[in-house]
């Protein structure tokens, strides 16, 4: 088991290097730092001095891969590639355009992101499974039929609509909870209610339908017939046999995203004014703060890889057939 995890971590390194190369190419090779400076400073009225100053402030004034002006190892280390890309492996993300330390920002914004994403995740999982089980229990009846119709309809609505309509109805029309913002300590709860509800609702259609398909697929298996042949009641068959088998793909599918919960949700956070990583990313995209976007890309893939490893581990926990070697 431990051996396996070590091996998986070992495999993660080439993938992270690949991600790093992709981001490096995207940010520094497709466009030169000069181009970016020109873009940031405004195309029309840009002076060469301003570009040099812009690059110096951000440390983009070095050669990309090889610094001929230096000696020894410094020829490789005093380069954009080493200082901007390789440094990320040590979580040195550098500074954002507004001068703040990105690593510090990420640390302080993780918790608010998690405060929304985690309840959405947990509550969502529960709600979807319950809905799907209900539909399967009443399969081949109108409950099931209209349930599927509802799911398809819910799937077809844009997530933006859920947010806008939710904000309008609950906060603006009924004045139940604040429309946006974030508070301290216990206060947080009242700001979280709306985004969490909306978060759960917005992916209800697709997930419920998917889980229903999984359950139905399990229902068709032979062991279900065996269970019925034992004289078990339909609800016991459903909960003890079908649910346990269908939970394997559901849980392991869900585990992948657990680490990514730290990144929060881009849209919801910016709509509700929650100071999480999602809104941080959006702000960075809007202000074209490349350093932050680069850091987030790296962090995102790191978390995804952690998610993959967790998935493998969770398989061994829920499925007795799988042993990691």
């Amino acid at each position: 088991m431990l051996n396996y995890i070590i091996r998986r971590l070992f495999y993660a390194i080439p993938i992270l290097i690949g991600v790093n190369l992709i981001t490096f190419t995207l940010f520094f090779v497709v466009n030169t730092p000069d181009d970016m400076a020109r873009m940031q400073l405004g195309i029309k009225r840009v002076t060469p001095d301003a570009i040099i100053k812009w690059k110096q402030e951000r440390g983009y004034d070095k050669p990309l891969l090889f610094n001929e002006g230096e000696q020894g190892l410094a020829q490789l280390t005093r380069t954009i590639f080493f200082e901007k890309s390789v440094a990320m492996f040590a979580f040195r993300f550098g500074r954002a355009d507004d001068g703040r330390d990105i690593a510090y920002e990420i640390k302080s914004r993780m918790m608010p992101s998690l405060a929304i994403a985690l309840p959405v995740f947990v509550l969502g999982l529960g709600v979807y499974v319950v809905f799907a089980l209900t539909m399967v229990f009443f399969r081949a009846t109108y409950v099931d039929f209209w349930g599927v119709v509802l799911c398809v309809a819910l799937m077809s609505i844009s997530s933006l609509f859920y947010i806008i309509a939710g904000q309008f109805l609950i906060s603006k029309l009924w004045h139940l909870v604040p429309i946006s913002g974030y508070g301290q300590h216990m206060d947080v709860a009242k700001f979280l209610v709306l985004p969490v509800i909306i978060g759960v609702a917005s992916s209800a259609g697709a997930n419920t339908r998917w889980y229903r398909t999984l359950f139905l697929e399990e229902m068709g298996k032979d062991y279900v017939r065996t269970a019925r042949a034992k004289g078990l009641a339909e609800s016991i068959v459903l909960f003890r046999h079908v649910l346990r088998n269908a939970l394997i793909p559901i849980l392991t599918g869900a585990v992948v995203v657990i680490p990514l919960l730290f990144l929060g949700s881009l849209i919801a956070e910016s709509f509700f004014g929650i100071p999480g990583l999602g809104s941080y990313t959006i702000d960075a995209i809007n202000s074209q703060d490349f350093a932050v976007v680069r850091a987030m890309v790296f962090l995102g893939s790191l978390l995804y890889i952690v998610g993959l490893i967790l998935t493998d581990i969770s398989y061994t926990l829920v499925d007795p057939r799988i042993r990691l070697e």
Binding site: V19, L26, L260, L263, T281, V297, G300, S301
Partner: peptide, 15 residues
């Protein structure tokens, strides 16, 4: 696929 989709798209579109 290990790069979160939105972020990759954002980075590429920005560039």
């Amino acid at each position: 696929s290990s790069i979160p989709g939105v972020l990759l798209i954002a980075a590429a579109v920005l560039m």
